[in-house]
């Protein structure tokens, strides 16, 4: 798993690539939180290179989604694929987080 972020004009993009699970969740969480500390006005989670996620990753994302919501910052998800799309859908996240195209 690799994670990196881009910040431009108030827009934070977090790229998560590979397979996200218990073994690397702390790295993803830390990068995400560093991005939030820059006070973005929009957050995009770019997942087109993410092949696998489980409930550990979902827990990390829900927690940040809630925090951003309380800050009034919209969060979008982009590039969901077969497995990640199904996990997002089954967890109910797809009905609360907006998809960016």
């Amino acid at each position: 798993m690799t994670v990196h972020r881009e910040f431009w004009g108030g827009r934070l993009v977090i790229y998560i690539c590979g397979e996200l699970d218990e073994s690397n969740i702390d790295i993803a969480r830390e990068e995400f939180d560093k991005g939030i500390a820059d006070n973005p006005n929009t957050v995009v989670l770019e997942m087109s290179e993410l092949k696998f996620i489980d409930s550990t990753g979902i827990g990390m994302i829900i927690s940040r989604y809630k925090r951003l919501k309380s800050m009034g910052v919209p969060m979008y998800v982009k590039g969901l694929k077969a497995q990640t799309e199904k996990v997002f859908r089954m967890s109910g996240l797809l009905s609360i987080i907006k998809i960016a195209h």
Binding site: S55, T56, I58, G59, M60, I62, S63, M90, S91
Partner: peptide
């Protein structure tokens, strides 16, 4: 349900096993 909410656990592990 999670016994570790402070760890940002979603509590969806068994639900996912059941669903998938």
């Amino acid at each position: 349900f999670t016994s570790k909410p402070e760890k940002e656990r979603s509590g969806m592990g068994f639900t996912f096993m059941q669903t998938f």
